[in-house]
Design a protein around this nucleic acid. Structure first.
Length: 276
DNA sequence: CGGCCAACCTGTGCGC
DNA sequence: TGCGCACAGGTTGGCC
């Protein structure tokens, strides 16, 4: 999925079209995504005003003025697109449904469409508490993330560093791409046992986590090959990674081949000589 | 609880 | 050109 920077970018892109707007209609084109839609989804959202958008971990939260909050997760392949009816009618067309447009939110003359080919996404509603947000760890840009926190969480965890950083209950929002990049900048092996991290290495990880995510957000959540901005602007995925998806290409630091390995069923890209 | 891994889906790209 | 297989941003839930 979309990792934290992509969800942050989507949130920032959607906010100007959503905040303060009333949901005039919610259309569900199927029974659910990864899970069935809740029975009261449509009636809870329709007619409400979206007061604020928020990102928490990789979740998007649409806060409504009727005490409900709509929770959305993009899974691996989910995306939102925004269309404006006034612009569309100029071209003599209304917003058209394409394959995998599962949910359509109408906000007056603005249409927000959720598309998700693989349907690993989630759409749900809650009032003051959602189970999926319970086990979410600290936000990377919050004060909660610091060397001592990572150090404490990693004690007794013999799991590889790669898996440890992907654990959403430790640090929220990291995914396969950015974990590879963070480990490269930190010169740490993805296979190193989490339990072996020194406090100093935890400090390095903290700093590089923020660096990698900041740059990605600045670049507009660039990691997705097939994601455009919510209104379809270009230049969105022209990002260059140091190691991710660069098997057999030269390490930017030492020029030796980037290695691709498998951890927890997922690809890890790293430099054998730079990362210890 | 920790660790491992199958499962949930569709699309794409590659080798033959 | 077509077929089959491997693989893709994530997370849950079941098993040991």
């Amino acid at each position: 999925m979309p990792e934290l920077p992509e969800v942050e970018t989507v949130m920032r892109g959607l906010a100007p079209f959503c905040e303060g707007k009333r949901v005039t209609r919610l259309t569900l084109n199927r029974e659910g995504l990864r899970f069935p839609f809740p029975p009261r989804l449509k009636e809870s959202v329709e007619g409400a005003i979206i007061t604020r958008l928020e990102r928490r971990a990789k979740y998007l939260l649409f806060h409504l003025d009727n005490s409900w909050t709509m929770l959305s997760h993009l899974g691996m392949s989910g995306s939102f697109r925004v269309e404006n009816a006034a612009t569309a009618t100029f071209h003599h067309e209304r917003s058209r449904l394409t394959a995998h447009d599962h949910v359509v939110m109408e906000l007056g003359d603005t249409t927000l469409t959720y598309n998700d080919p693989r349907r690993f996404g989630v759409l749900d509603i809650f009032k003051d508490h959602h189970k999926m947000l319970d086990n979410v760890g600290v936000e990377p840009f919050s004060n909660g993330l610091h060397a001592a926190y990572i150090h404490e969480k990693s004690r007794g965890r013999k799991t590889p560093l790669k898996n440890f950083l992907l654990d959403q209950s430790i640090i929220a929002g990291l995914g396969n791409i950015y974990v590879c990049e963070i480990l490269f900048l930190s010169k740490l092996s993805p296979f190193k046992s989490a339990n072996d991290l020194t406090l100093h290495e935890c400090e390095t990880l903290t700093n590089n986590t923020r660096t990698v995510l900041s740059l990605a957000i600045e670049a507009g959540g660039s990691s997705l090959k097939d994601h455009a901005g919510v209104t379809g602007e270009l230049g969105y995925f022209s990002h260059k990674f140091n190691v991710y998806d660069r098997e057999n290409m030269p390490c930017p630091a030492c020029k030796r081949c980037i290695i691709r390995a498998k951890q927890g069923g997922r690809s890890t890209f790293y430099c054998e000589s730079c990362q210890k």
